[in-house]
Design a protein around this nucleic acid. Structure first.
Lengths: 130, 130
DNA sequence: AGTGGTTTTGACAATCATTCTCACTCGGGC
DNA sequence: GCCCGAGTGAGAATGATTGTCAAAACCACT
């Protein structure tokens, strides 16, 4: 198995940087538009590719909005979940050790292996009107 | 506000029935194909519309597969979560009262209102190879 | 059973995020 | 500086979902 060389390109840095500086979840399309308008020529396909790679490496979190769009966010720390405001998009990272344990227990009880889980909580934050 | 009459059509029954008889999550496309091939003429758009309605009424559960396809499943009982086999699609419904409480608590602590959450656990079940 | 007014349907076009294609470019080891 | 394969990008392709709108079906009323 030959390990593929990992080149460091301007585009990849740009995407990673843009994600790192953003607070909230961002769609690939948005990211592309933002990079473009900030004088950073980059192809849409490249944005998608880079995001996939980053997500695969666990450097960013991915989740799907209700309308089927994938959104990305830079996430440094280990496993955690998200509390998202449906109005303004504000995101709070939360941890729930008991949830992890519960999921593991349930899985074991049903004979499931290699288990992963996703948990998202969406609501309206205190700064947004009803 | 005049309440729109709810007509009972052959197509709607067919979709509801097909969902009720199915065990696992099914995509709209699959459902459409299955209805068609079982001698039940129905339009794709109608399948989507009906599924949306059913989902809105809380008669079916919706979730998104990793590749962005919406899948539907008939779910009788109240709020619960799913343990899904990534290989064969087998689905186990599970409840987690403590998870609900945890989610509520976290939300309250962060000042969120009108909170909903989604939790899916995926793994490989005991009957599927690694 | 017939009629009318409205909802629902369905074939097809349109949309839209994402992926594919493939010729071209550039990073970096020599 | 040279080379070559990984990386890029413009546009086409894909594929699920939604919109359109004339035609069909439903139901209340006679």
């Amino acid at each position: 198995m030959v390990q593929t060389p990992k080149r460091l390109t301007r585009q990849q840095s740009a995407v990673a940087e843009a994600l790192r500086s953003g607070e909230d979840f961002t769609s690939a399309q948005d990211l592309h538009a933002r990079l473009r308008s900030s004088g950073n020529p980059i192809g849409l396909a490249t944005v998608y590719r880079t995001l996939q790679t980053l997500a695969g490496d666990g450097d960013v979190d991915v989740l799907r909005t209700d309308d089927g769009e994938s959104v990305y966010r830079h996430c440094s720390t280990g496993h955690h979940h998200h509390l998202v405001c449906r109005a303004c998009g504000k995101t709070v990272e939360v941890e729930g050790p008991m949830v992890e344990k519960w999921a593991d227990k349930i899985s074991a009880q049903n004979g499931f292996r290699d288990v992963r889980h996703t948990l998202e909580i969406i609501g309206t934050c205190s700064e947004c009107p009803a």
